[in-house]
């Protein structure tokens, strides 16, 4: 564990709390992509099957359980109690293409041919693009509530810190994980445009709106 990875994981955790806070405070999930949230649930469930086969640390297991449980809870909130506030008409990105694409990549380039590694690779590829429905929705509406942009920013910052963690681990431990690196780089690049708009608008106290 290094500082980049620890802060990244904590930011990831924070992003989920920000999202839950937004839904509770505004009593609405308007502007939040249910597709992105459902994709994250699929990502966590397919990646963390090693909870049953391998023990790393209490920290590792608790984080995994939290990510699975919280993503399931968010999908439930959006699907049931807050359904009337869900902006379905702007959440129109074709998420099935992302799932099929990630599945094909997972089968073509798995970490190994073990079923857990195929699913792990699938989850890595899927996580890289899971934010797309959310970014697409923000583009369609042209703006987002500030708290929704904080959520996306925390997620993007978590990914950016993972890149630094990999550079650090490469030099200190010789650690290499090409699949995670490539997918992680793609994932971070997807946030690039968003970062710029976020920093120039939200940080100056203006509503997140696209030029």
């Amino acid at each position: 564990m290094n500082i980049f990875r620890l802060v990244a994981d904590l930011l990831h955790l924070a992003s989920i709390f920000i999202l839950l806070l937004k839904i509770q405070q505004t009593k609405s999930c308007a502007g939040v992509s249910l597709k992105t949230q459902a994709l994250y649930f699929v990502v966590f469930v397919t990646r963390y099957l090693d909870l049953f086969t391998h023990f790393y640390s209490v920290y590792n297991s608790l984080m995994k359980l939290f990510f699975i449980a919280s993503s399931a809870y968010i999908v439930y909130l959006m699907w049931k109690p807050y359904r009337p506030t869900y902006s379905a008409s702007t959440d129109t990105f074709r998420a099935e293409f992302l799932i099929v694409g990630a599945a094909l990549l997972g089968l073509a380039f798995p970490d190994s041919w073990h079923i857990l590694d195929i699913l792990w690779s699938f989850s890595i590829y899927l996580e890289a693009v899971a934010i797309l429905p959310q970014l697409f929705q923000m583009t369609r509406t042209g703006e987002a509530e500030t708290i929704t942009s904080h959520y996306v920013f925390a997620l993007g910052a978590y990914r950016a810190l993972y890149l630094m963690n990999w550079i650090y681990r490469y030099y200190t431990e010789g650690y290499m994980d090409v699949i995670a690196w490539v997918a992680g780089a793609v994932q971070t690049i997807l946030y690039a445009d968003f970062f710029y708009i976020y920093l120039t608008r939200v940080m100056r106290g203006r509503l997140f709106s696209l030029p």
Binding site: D50, Y56, D111, H114, L116, W120
Partner: peptide, 10 residues
Amino acid sequence: DEEAKVHDEL
């Protein structure tokens, strides 16, 4: 059966 690889990152 071969073991799955170890992935220590979240």
